[in-house]
Design a protein around this nucleic acid. Structure first.
Lengths: 199, 199, 199, 199
DNA sequence: TACTAACCGAGACGGTACGTCTGGTCTTGAG
DNA sequence: CTCAAGACCAGACGTACCGTCTCGGTTAGTA
């Protein structure tokens, strides 16, 4: 048996890769994730279908990669959290911003699409945690550690749990559309969390 | 435009309806939601495809209905929460049971499938909240109100928020596979929540 | 076993029968025989499908019956052939009329439809010969016998064969569209036939 | 409107083409033309349905092509007519052979099917005349011209008309099943035709 | 005058096939 | 060897009809 010919990444066309990712992003925004097809991505990108199948295992992987590429551009910019010394104020600022972001209809479709795939495909879920969630969480935890040192948060608090209590309710409300996402709601989550993990 | 002929529900075959819902449930469990096809459901149910298209608008709606039917059977049974007078103990019991339920691989596929559809389709999300989530939440809130009367929970606590803080982290961990679902985790969530909403 | 309930012709609704035949005729003219469906006939006639299936065995039978009904109206009128004493002149008159009839686009669709079914279904072919062709042929043969008595045709000529030689070429040309149907062609067929069967 | 993408015949798979035509021929022989479906042809041929729809516009066209392919094999063989110098004897030989051929039940189904389609579809009728009828007629006319030179047929006879008078009655009898096809009938047609077109 | 048996319009049912669309693989020709 | 292009096999999609089967509601003819 021949050793299962794998493509040689060295020869990969960067031009095609970019075109595919751009086409994927555009199509998800235009027609919604479920209606995007590999054929349409290939056609829009001016690329043969085989070129996509050669380098990505599934539609989900292509779309995921296109988000990854997007976020890595963003990383250079907004990867910093405010630290005024007042944890509650800082968290409220961040949470209100998050609420606003979720309300933006341009983010709606792609993020829901992303979640659809993550729920279904454990491989993509792992990549999501590693490549997208982890870096963002690291920054947040850094701010929380700063608060612990300042005595504004219990020193033995499990920071992963803190982030979950802070964000998961917001995230779930948005996903299930089970309630309004208001600045007041953002504030309430911060207050609840700080009371739960008070020193 | 003709007035979009609608089927007459009075003539609907209950036999076929049940067969379709049963087939849908079985197939989702066997091959996973995305690989289920309307053709397969029709074949398994011994039903013409048109009979499905006549009464349901989409695959998601069929599968959702099949879950609904399931849960309504369950309602007759386990619709009661323990009330020993000790809120923390009672909640831990419930949360540990929830954790165990999520760990059951037989629940894995259908519930992930359900979430996939809910995220995408606002109509199904609304039905989900109304028909599935609301009744369950009502029971839980009843227990919480009992605790408020007993002085174990802040009298002015927003019960929807309490439930979110309690359940959303667990739910998110499971959906994203972002951490282990252990009895200890269940306990921790209960403790954190009670501290946050202490009287 | 019950004696295979047959419908009682006594209770048959003449109203429905007429409506079905009229609808069939109209639809064949409008969309062509192959595109006519029983459902469409029933809908157009304002009749339940079962009413058609009760009284006719197939779409072909319905359409055939609708032609039969038409022709029987016509019988009262034009069932006579000219007999001026000059066989050649009389036949040319008749053949030129036939050519003109075939050229009428309103006759095109139904007659082609009729032939399609006759070719395929031996039962309909038998009915066609008996109910439609035979009466017309009888009239023509009567004229030929008159010509035999007048010494304008061989006394021992096989009249079926005479009619075939006279009409089959015309009929075939029309069916296969293998040549123009002109008055001259009609004349030529008469002349050829008379020479072949000259006394 | 986009320019209606056409398939590139250069890339067409000869393998698939042959498999489709063979499957079509077999199925028409086995179950009859009207009961043949595109799905069945595709399945039998081991071909995707799209491959049929890509290259043929209709079931009729596929079946017609399968006949065409058959006849082109036959052309190499029997494309010769006897020419003993005696026109009457030669024509009787040929007509009796034709009668025998029509009596063969193996030819029954396909040829009736062919006629069904030709009657309905002008495009196929044109193809039929050009690809199937014309070559055969050319050979026959050659024999007739030889007879004209030999003084056995009127020098000014319209050979198309001669062939029609000779064959159309036979053809019509068979199509309509309006009479027996016997060797005597074949002889009678030859005699009638020769008398009609005697020098 | 009531009963009752059939037909009637309507339309849901289990099916088959349609013609289209997409998935994922394979082939061709250019660079 | 990669790439764009696109034909290929496979099979699901949603629609249209098939022929059968209830449903109530007329509409006879019988009692």
């Amino acid at each position: 048996m021949p050793p299962a010919r794998k493509p040689d990444p060295g020869r990969r066309s960067e031009r095609s890769r970019q075109a595919v990712l751009a086409a994927a992003r555009e199509l998800v925004a235009e027609v919604g994730y479920t209606k995007v097809t590999i054929e349409a991505i290939a056609a829009r990108a001016g690329v043969g279908k085989q070129t996509i199948y050669r380098w990505w295992p599934s539609k989900g992987a292509v779309v995921f990669d296109s988000f990854l590429a997007l976020s890595q551009e963003a990383d250079d910019d907004a990867m910093a959290l405010p630290d005024t010394g007042d944890l509650e104020a800082d968290l409220k600022t961040v949470m209100r911003a998050t609420v606003a972001e979720f309300a933006d209809p341009a983010f709606e479709a792609p993020i829901r699409a992303l979640n659809t795939e993550i729920i279904t495909d454990p491989g993509l879920a792992a990549q999501y945690r590693e490549k997208l969630a982890a870096p963002v969480d690291a920054v947040k935890k850094e701010r929380l550690r700063s608060a612990q040192r300042a005595g504004q948060l219990a020193a033995d608090a499990d920071l992963d749990l803190v982030l979950e209590v802070l964000y998961a309710p917001l995230y779930q409300r948005w996903l299930h559309r089970s309630g309004p996402l208001t600045p007041e709601y953002a504030d309430a989550l911060v207050e609840v969390t700080l009371r739960a993990f008070a020193p």
